[in-house]
Amino acid sequence: MNQPRISESGEKFCQEVFAQMMEQSHAVYGVLISTVDGHDVTKRFKREMPVAKLSAMMGSVLALGETIAREAQQERCRYVIVENSDGFILTLKLKEKLVLTVIASADANLGLLHTLSRNAVEKLAKSLK
């Protein structure tokens, strides 16, 4: 299957951005870029997680968030946040066809996670074609 791929330099840049995010918040233990239709592109995980399954699920979750916003007559879904007893999963659109997902433990500051994720999207969007 012809899945989307990024260049070697693009991959390197993504990994640098992911590492910075993890440095800025030690609660962050997973960052994933996937496509809007559920394929994994690149990731940095501190623990093992099923990347293919998560990529598909994040595509679904973000699409549902966007659809729910439309049905509720609200505009432009910025984030979908799944808040759990032991952590957060925050996902947002990265350019037109990509999705950025940030996975963090419960000691994360949600405001900081927002900022980190938004900044990362801005950086990545400039670099990724």
Binding site: M1, N2, D37, T67, K97
Partner: peptide, 10 residues
């Protein structure tokens, strides 16, 4: 209600 997204594969 639809949840269509751009296709990025074959």
């Amino acid at each position: 209600v639809r949840t269509d997204q751009a296709t990025t594969d074959d």
